[in-house]
Computed example of a mutant assay.
Amino acid sequence: MNLKEEMQPATGTTTIKAVRVHQHGGPAVLTYEEIAIGQPGRGEVRIRNKAVGLNFVDIYFRNGDYTPPALPFIPGNEGAGIVVAVGEDVKDFAPGDRVAYVMTLGAYAEESLVPAHYLVHLPDTIDFETGAAMLLKGLTAQYLLRRTFKVEAGHTILIHAAAGGVGLILTQWAKHLGAIVIGTVGSPEKAEIALKNGCDYVIDYRKEDFAKRVKEITNGEGCHVVYDGIGKATFSGSLDCLRPFGYFVSYGSASGAIEKFDIMTLMQKGSVFATWQLLFDHLRKREDVLAMSKELFEVVTSGAVKIPVHNRLPLSEAAEAHRRLEARETTGATVLVLWH
């Protein structure tokens, strides 16, 4: 299908292919099937997806850790493609526009209905696969580095899973800001990737006590901030990596949820701060969606941050993509691609 055909507004109800979850469970519950999609409602845009991003949050929705609006549902929280139709009151988008979107369940499909609030124009210099891989992870990095704890030149920071999708963006962006970056990884191969993407020091947590090594690297001072997407397995050690009044910033629980703890622990660890913020809360205002996306696109188009798409699978193989992500077999970003 050429661009001219793609720009023609869709009419009525169309049958498309999509991945749906009918019951919570492992990767096998992801079923590739035909569904009907209608026209966009007020404030919505219908997108013909070209690529869809894969994220740990998709696993949380699939296995029931996060509750979807209803069952069955279509997973996926970011994608990129071409506008095919717009609903009432949508003024900033038109059929044919290249776009990317975030924070909208339903991306694992040939076409998606997306609230215009979470939609942004995709710069011509960014291809669809990169666009699909960068918005959720990139905006997560943006709020972590620029809003939750504002990283500045000279700060020493620790990034867990530094070779992961969010980790590689965090590492490059933090280095661009002038920070001293320490990263943790789980293999020599991932250590090499982390070093190539800006880590000053890399710790293989399977071979070393990362908290002890951080203290050695920082001459006992500790880090200004720890960014932790791992959760249960790293929480206690992460607190030990902080200097007094440092920030523990959680944004995921790949190893399981952090267990309940006595808030006095934060005082005992050096009067440190601990926070977990949602990207959704940072994107409640349309002006923030635009401002945060603008800053992300600027660091990517300038070359300061590169979005590594290391894995590509067809949408029909979403279950295999989930299996690989859960098994920690991936580095960088994975995208599910569609050909029209």
Rank of each mutant, 00 (worst) to 15 (best):
D124Q: 15
D124K: 15
T125V: 06
T125C: 04
T125Q: 15
T125I: 00
T125H: 01
I126K: 08
I126W: 06
D127W: 08
F128Y: 15
F128P: 04
E129K: 15
E129Y: 01
T130M: 02
T130K: 13
T130V: 14
T130C: 07
T130A: 07
G131W: 11
G131I: 12
G131Q: 13
G131M: 13
A132N: 09
A132H: 10
A132I: 11
A132P: 00
A133D: 03
A133T: 08
A133K: 10
A133I: 06
M134H: 00
M134T: 07
L135E: 05
L136P: 03
L136N: 11
L136F: 14
K137V: 09
K137M: 13
K137W: 02
K137T: 13
K137Y: 07
G138Y: 08
L139E: 02
A141N: 05
Y143C: 03
Y143W: 07
L144G: 09
L144A: 11
L145C: 05
L145D: 05
R146F: 01
R146T: 13
R147E: 15
T148A: 14
F149K: 06
K150F: 05
K150Q: 14
K150P: 00
E152Y: 00
A153T: 12
A153R: 14
G154P: 01
G154D: 04
T156R: 12
T156A: 08
I157A: 10
L158V: 09
I159P: 01
A161E: 10
A161R: 07
A161N: 10
A161M: 10
A161Q: 12
A163M: 00
A163L: 00
G164A: 13
G164Q: 11
G165S: 13
G165D: 08
G165I: 03
V166E: 06
V166C: 06
G167H: 04
G167R: 04
L168K: 07
L168A: 10
L168C: 10
L168M: 15
